[in-house]
Design a protein around this nucleic acid. Structure first.
Lengths: 120, 120
DNA sequence: CACGTCTTCAACCAATTGGTTAAATACAAA
DNA sequence: TTTGTATTTAACCAATTGGTTGAAGACGTG
């Protein structure tokens, strides 16, 4: 199921600190300590946040001595945008159709068609 | 802060049931009972889910006798796509720049430039 | 009014989450 | 080998979450 992956990604980005980390990684790779510096939480807490981002596939890590540089994996973003765009388009199309129906009704109002349950 | 709104939206969509509800509302408005029918949880649980979507600004509701039809508010999607696209673009641009640097290095390798801290 | 239907509110529960401190691990340098 | 730095693991805590059951509101109909 890609479904669970979507949940992970949305959930990961639901946290402001995590979104901020992603934003900063978009500007360049960084180590855990570097990432932790601006926040007033412990480095362990940030380590956990990074773990969540990693599990969601948003971040990957390499090794440089005792450091673990974090790298943003932007491909996962596509998963979200695809989901979002699909339903936005669907909703917009429906809106357009409804608009057309209303226009139609304006020209030719209530000419004794089917009385109930016409729209699905 | 629009920041908190973003958290709400991402958090709301982090749940598969809630995403499914959004997907179905994209196809047309529906009441709480109609929405609850396919799931094997109580209608109260679904009512709570809808509340979360409503608080996030993803769903609005009208009144039709004792029914409360739910309507998808697709505009909020823009908030997410804007955030996502911004950082994806940023990451891609950075990648492109890095690529250019590597190409440059391939043509003119190590001509004794600055030794340390050149890249920011 | 009494009744049935649709929906929410209240109280509760188990699991998850975001944070903490303290201890362990991984590695470079002295 | 000891020391220092970067990071993770473990155990814990309070708050939140997704679910439950049971009762209450809101509203048309008999």
């Amino acid at each position: 199921m890609t479904d669970d992956r979507l949940s992970q990604v949305f959930s990961a980005l639901a946290d402001p600190t995590r979104r901020d980390i992603v934003a900063r990684l978009a500007a360049g790779d960084a180590t855990v300590n570097e990432l932790a510096e601006p926040y007033d939480v412990t480095v362990q807490a940030v380590s956990k946040h990074i773990r969540v981002l990693e599990d969601a596939g948003l971040v990957s890590r390499s090794r440089d001595a005792q450091r673990r540089p974090c790298h943003l994996e932007a491909e996962v973003f596509d998963l979200m945008t695809k989901w979002i765009e699909r339903y936005r388009r669907e909703a917009e199309d429906r809106f357009r159709r409804l608009d057309a129906v209303l226009e139609q009704m304006d020209e030719q109002p209530m000419t004794g068609g089917p009385a109930k349950g016409a729209a699905s």
